[in-house]
Design a binder for these strands. Structure first.
Lengths: 221, 221
DNA sequence: TACCAGATTACGGTTTTCCGTAAAAAATGG
DNA sequence: CCATTTTTTACGGAAAACCGTAATCTGGTA
């Protein structure tokens, strides 16, 4: 059963509406934070006091506003929080809608639920909390639809290096010298062309710009 | 004095938080709509009944969800609403942060206030409503900061469209037909080259891949 | 109407990328 | 060691992007 919840959300209005939604569920033990660092501190304090949180509801993007923060975003908060309290349930509440990013949250960050800020988000929040309370992960239908058609490619280090160079403005024909300088083989221009062609064909792309966009999406570069 | 307010906002959670914020201001006569068309109908009905709204609080982007809508977004709603009730006060509540778009809202759509969905948005909403109640326009400080921010280039809608097409794999030479199909001018290949060159030179880039990476980073695409 | 200034488009030459083929080098196996 | 296969590199023609210049269109003005 979920009774004690921490909300990490920098937008005041979103924070308010989550609180209100929780109250409608009869949950009264609510703490909230506008900064990731603040959220992590509350988790640490609660663990120390022996009254840890049952659930963390967090956004992904936190806008910098001058205050120095060690945690830059929700994903870093999740990692840090789980280090302090491994059994903490995590529900992500975000406007993110890129399937690859959401998939990463479930697979790498092992979150327990994701609710997208969208039309019926308040209702979905209630459903999600209900499910998580029954020790089930909440996986919205529209997400699984998106993720099912996944054509994922696992990039090698050299692949990433090449795409990074492109994203930095390096001409394709100049990449060989960069690779040679780092002692990376193969470094021939033809090999680079071949690697790029292979990546693009696997992912169904035709242009380098698509590769750059895709790698940005999944956080590979 | 503002006593009767209509909220047009498709996100349930955002809608809730605006309602709550208004209640804290002692405003009880609140109507809300999840669709632009619905919002316009309520305005029409209220005018007919001789009990028109004092203020419309509206989002800009409304996500399509199958229901056929004649009004596609908040800007169309504003235009249509003012046609029915020219003296209607309008407050835009949106995540939009492109200075040029916000400027347009003030200049072309003659809105009375803009509050960006961000850290202190609930407090700003209260301030905005207070100001508008005193027949003053509300122009948040951070907007002017954005407008005279250097280093960052403010992308126009066409700029974004072009970069999106590139990131989708469209050949540069094929972009003109896409723009023509959408009725966007200029659509000549030379104009597109010129726009891309301008963006790149302002940002210190040399390749389109850099533009795509940059726009992904700042969330412009 | 005629004219001008700015915006838009068309054009041509150069550079870069794309892509198929083939030579060279390296790894594999007996 | 040689023979075979795989990987890497080199080469060349075609397509696309790049870039400067010139022609055309447009809206405003006298």
């Amino acid at each position: 059963m979920i009774t004690k919840i921490l909300i990490a959300e920098d937008h005041e209005s979103a924070n308010i509406s989550v609180q209100k939604t929780l109250e409608e569920l009869g949950i009264t033990d609510i703490a909230y934070a506008y900064y990731c660092d603040d959220a992590l501190n509350r988790i640490i304090q609660a663990v120390k006091a022996g009254s840890s949180f049952d659930l963390l509801i967090t956004d992904l993007s936190f806008e910098p506003d001058g205050h120095k923060q060690t945690l830059a975003n929700g994903m870093e908060l999740i990692t840090a929080a789980r280090k302090e309290q491994p059994d903490l349930n995590v529900l992500v509440f975000s406007a993110e809608n890129r399937p690859t990013v959401i998939e990463q949250l479930y697979n790498n960050y092992e979150i327990d639920g994701f609710v997208r800020k969208a039309r019926n988000d308040a209702r979905e929040l209630k459903e999600a909390i209900h499910e998580i309370g029954r020790h089930r992960r909440y996986f919205p239908r529209h997400i699984s639809q998106l993720i099912d058609k996944k054509n994922t490619y696992s990039f090698s280090d050299v692949d990433i290096t090449i795409i990074q160079l492109l994203a930095q403005g390096t001409l394709q024909k100049d990449i060989p010298v960069y690779l040679q300088r780092k002692g990376i083989t193969p470094s021939g221009l033809s090999s680079i062309e071949k690697k790029l062609n292979h990546m693009k064909s696997v992912l169904g792309f035709t242009k380098n710009e698509q590769l750059v966009a895709y790698c940005k999406d999944i956080g590979a570069i």
